[in-house]
């Protein structure tokens, strides 16, 4: 069975991407299971999706703990432990990253033993809106890496899944997927179906008897409550991004990358964060080339917001 996991941020089209890959496997005669997973639907929040494909009936369900291929369309997630990108990644897992850094840098930074491949976000085929089509490019790459999907199946899957969005998007997506498919040709069939370990020996789960704890500890309260008095939408953040304008070189990357459009530029081109609507995803911090953005704990800060 192929077990493939996608990681992205909400709004980047990863659900659609996983469905294109699932459909392509299905067209090639595979049994398929694909599913997105997200919490409160929030643009910019880490989400994941997965695809299982097998020649036999699939009885496994839910999260893929031991993936054969992990696809990351937003490299900032690799530095975010909560995104869980590296969950179950071993030396036999192929990691495909949409990034402009080299794969060597990522291998070293994350201490990875397995094969790391990249799709350049700069070189990616752009949509008519000027955005790189990374999700569908990663699907093209994955199709080649698995080696089980022909170009014609990939093309049919893209048509099937994207047709409602119109001809232009279908054509752009086809171009992006096929370019990545060709780019990955040297690595064809690098992603293999894993042999599962025998049920004869396994690590016992570390079950415990849950101890009683009284309601002061065990009732699900949020102590930092009533934040709607301070912030219109209530505080979503645990950490707050703060910009040191002395270090800022006015490159505007934070303004561009903010998934919620809450970083505006003032008359002089300096970024200003609207804390009423900032959700604390910290993408700005990860993007800032001069490290002018810091993250400070949110608690105790509410009163400072007008």
């Amino acid at each position: 069975m192929y077990r493939i996991r996608f990681h992205a941020r909400g709004g980047q089209g990863i659900k659609t991407a996983s469905r294109i890959l699932g459909t392509a496997f299905f067209l090639e005669g595979y049994e398929v299971q694909d599913s997105p997973r997200y919490g409160a639907e929030r643009r910019g929040a880490p989400i994941f999706a997965y695809v299982r494909a097998s020649k036999k009936i699939i009885n496994e369900r839910g999260i893929i703990n031991k993936p054969d291929l992990v696809i990351v369309t937003d490299d900032s997630l690799l530095l975010l432990p909560i995104a869980g990108v590296l969950l179950g990644v071993t030396e036999r897992t192929v990691l495909l990253i949409a990034t402009d850094e080299t794969t060597e840098v990522w291998k070293k930074r994350l201490n990875l033993q397995g094969l790391v491949l990249s799709i350049s976000t700069q070189a990616a085929v752009e949509s008519h809106a000027g955005l790189p089509l990374l999700g569908v490019a990663c699907v093209g790459a994955a199709a080649q890496l698995a080696g089980a999907i022909s170009k014609s199946a990939l093309e049919e899957a893209i048509h099937e899944q994207l047709q409602p969005l119109g001809k232009v998007i279908v054509e752009e997506s086809l171009a992006a997927a096929m370019a990545a498919y060709d780019q990955m040709e040297p690595y064809a069939r690098c992603t293999t179906e894993r042999e599962d370990p025998s049920a004869d020996s396994y690590e016992s789960p570390h079950w415990i008897d849950l101890p009683f704890e009284d309601a002061r500890t065990s009732a699900p309260y949020i102590h930092a409550a009533a934040t709607t008095f301070n912030v219109k939408t209530g505080v979503w953040r645990t950490m707050r991004p703060v910009i040191d304008l002395k270090q800022c070189n006015r490159c505007a990357l934070c303004h561009i990358y903010c998934p919620d459009g809450v970083i505006s530029l003032d008359a002089k081109g300096y970024p200003q964060i609207d804390y009423q609507h900032c959700k604390g995803c910290l993408i700005c911090l990860l993007q800032c080339p001069t490290h002018a953005i810091d993250a400070i704990p949110e608690h105790g800060q509410e009163g400072e917001i007008s």
């Binding site: 469905r19 699932g22 299905f26 049994e31 398929v32 299971q33 694909d34 599913s35 997105p36 997973r37 699939i58 369900r61 839910g62």
Partner: peptide, 10 residues
């Protein structure tokens, strides 16, 4: 929910 509701299968 999720395990069937959002999960595609043949």
């Amino acid at each position: 929910g999720f395990y069937l509701s959002f999960t595609r299968e043949p």
